[in-house]
Design a binder for these strands. Sequence first.
DNA 1: ATTTGTGAACAGTTTCACAGCG
DNA 2: CGCTGTGAAACTGTTCACAAAT
Lengths: 213, 213
Amino acid sequence: MFLDDISFQNMYTGEMKQIPEPARKRLVLLERILENYPEKNITSLKIQNLTGWSSAVVRRDISYIGVSCGATNGYRVRELHHTLRNELYDFSEEKKGCIVGLGKLGQRLLDTTELYGTPFKIVAGFDSSVNKTEVLSSSFPLHPTPLMKKIIADENIVFALLTVEREDPQETCNLLIDCGIKKIINYTSTILSVPDEVKVRNVSLLTSLYLLS
Amino acid sequence: MFLDDISFQNMYTGEMKQIPEPARKRLVLLERILENYPEKNITSLKIQNLTGWSSAVVRRDISYIGVSCGATNGYRVRELHHTLRNELYDFSEEKKGCIVGLGKLGQRLLDTTELYGTPFKIVAGFDSSVNKTEVLSSSFPLHPTPLMKKIIADENIVFALLTVEREDPQETCNLLIDCGIKKIINYTSTILSVPDEVKVRNVSLLTSLYLLS
DNA sequence: ATTTGTGAACAGTTTCACAGCG
DNA sequence: CGCTGTGAAACTGTTCACAAAT
């Protein structure tokens, strides 16, 4: 259902391979950990203690992105962080996105600083309530839903964060697809039906609770 | 790092086995889909069309919970839904939880109806700002953080949704552990250090975006 | 005829264990 | 030496394919 889009090249054969998804998830987290890591070097064992991932898994994950540290003192943090950023994210073009639905969750995402240093940028918000789009403030413009098609085309928006609370998520999703959006993060608890070329990732706020026990 | 707590019994040998985590995630979602499914029967192929999971994976997932439908017309929706609920959730005791941090995300969780029909219930909210705890309204009481230890003990709260925005997540986490909390859903982008007996699940709002492409 | 339930094959991921580098 | 990088083994999860059920 979900394509794996990040690839890496085998150092010796030159063959392109996919980084396994579990590894990519960990590497994205590792990138964030290293961003604020105060020391100059870090070993796979220290990462194990920080994260709970086994040191062997850490070493193999890092080997996928082709960093070679020269042993003994562990990885050089700045170099590893830099390589991670460049391997995980494609900085050749900025990817613009919008928030659809300005309830509490949408408002939370208005303020996010999490996308700094990534090629992703949120450039617009939409809500069917003109009250919301006029009262809320944000660093980018908020528009009433009827303007969606025009704004998405004008701004070249390629992804959407679907955070509607009152509207039917499937209907809003259909609208987004009609606007040409191919990448959707779905924060609602509705399972969306989409054509094959549209990729959806579901983020459920509370499912983790059931899995915790 | 994370224990698998849901088990099932092999029909023939009586041996207890764990339901694999990917299967459990799908079953939790399936439970929610079936809740509002209008028809009397559903086949693994219909579930495949709804979700994108292969019909074989659906059948195996369902076999873990030991439903046997008698072939031909697919699964009886009500029976399957009922069995799913009982196998996935332990209704023998209600698990009470609290929201820690009443920023936008915490406020969004105040309103959630997602836990209806599960043994989980949110019974308190905490914020270091008395202004927030007094002004916000909710179906359960909101308290200033200094009361946390007393309320968690009095109410027998066992899990926490960590949604702080300004405070240091690790410090708040330490406080929760000191209050005896053993299960934490971490919505912040900080990796938490916890003792082995404390289980943490991280819910990242935007990591999925990086994985989408 | 249709659809389940499941061994067996296959694919993907993690762990083990150790050679080799600095 | 300590620590990485990685074959090979072990393990986990998915797909295939078909007998059984009705």
